[in-house]
Nucleic acid binder design. Structure first.
Lengths: 145, 145
DNA sequence: ACCAATGGTTGAAGTTGGCAACGATCGCCT
DNA sequence: AGGCGATCGTTGCCAACTTCAACCATTGGT
């Protein structure tokens, strides 16, 4: 009351708490990686690929914030595992589109099962609080991301 | 409205939105890493070390969910940069405690300046909504993490 | 038909990551 | 006191990740 909170302090606190939530959840992520026997970058790549929407290699590189040549190696190994297929574009034959195979879709589903549900701390909130939280985040993040 | 939301759907939606927020913010993280000229694991390690609380190598390995031998290499490079110092324990001479040097503290401060504030979507909420969000997260995460 | 620009690959060098083996140290046990 | 299993950090090995520069194929404009 005596210390007027700066305009950003509540948002910063929320951000810090979310960061802690993620940090605490990283163990689950690594466990999921070894469960499907893929490295973390391979899992991130596979989860980024929508089965119904072929993606150029360079777009994946952008999503993963890394070099094109890096994606080449990661996709090589995903292709060795038959989870992904490269398909040369028709309009522009330089770009190669990434398709998720049937096996890839299955692994994606398994990963979503392992990683898609909320971590325990969020589930400890009452249903009303959960809805309130989701509504706030929806308003903040919305379509912007 | 016709489909009654399952008990966990609101929490899952909140989790998904938080994940998107993190994904969208990863660019800032990499930018901060190159700004201080450290690799992502080095930044994670340095941020994990409280300057006032020396930490054993193995504890850092636990925090980072990786092998002890991995931390050896990361700390080697941090020590080359004079950001961290190893100090053998007195009670148990097997463990080596990690101390943050003055330069390390400065880099940590710079990183906190770059990464500590909330990302733009959270700031778009009104102050009241920010407080509401922080309160919900505080209740969920609390001391558990 | 040239020519700069783009998408993806290759090669080199350094970092990360896990695993097995090792040396040093500790705690316990007799 | 001495011995012995367990623990902490390091080293060596190898696979994967990451960036950078160089390269090839292809594109679009001139």
């Amino acid at each position: 009351m005596s210390t007027a909170p700066s305009q950003t302090s509540a948002a910063s606190e929320a951000w810090l708490l979310m960061s802690r939530l993620f940090q605490a959840n990283r163990g689950h992520f690594f466990a999921a990686c070894s469960e499907v026997d893929l490295s973390p970058p391979q899992v991130i790549a596979l989860r980024s690929l929508r089965p119904d929407d072929p993606m150029p290699m360079s777009e994946l590189a952008g999503l993963m914030h890394c070099d094109n040549s890096n994606v080449t190696g990661i996709v090589d190994r995903l292709e060795d595992r038959r989870l992904v297929v490269r398909q040369a574009g028709t309009r522009d034959r330089r770009v190669k589109y990434l398709l998720v195979t049937k096996e890839g879709i299955a692994v994606r589903a398994r990963l979503e099962e392992l990683l898609g549900h909320a971590p325990e701390p969020l589930l400890s909130l009452s249903p009303a609080e959960q809805r309130q939280l989701a509504a706030l985040l929806r308003k903040a993040v919305g379509e912007s991301v």
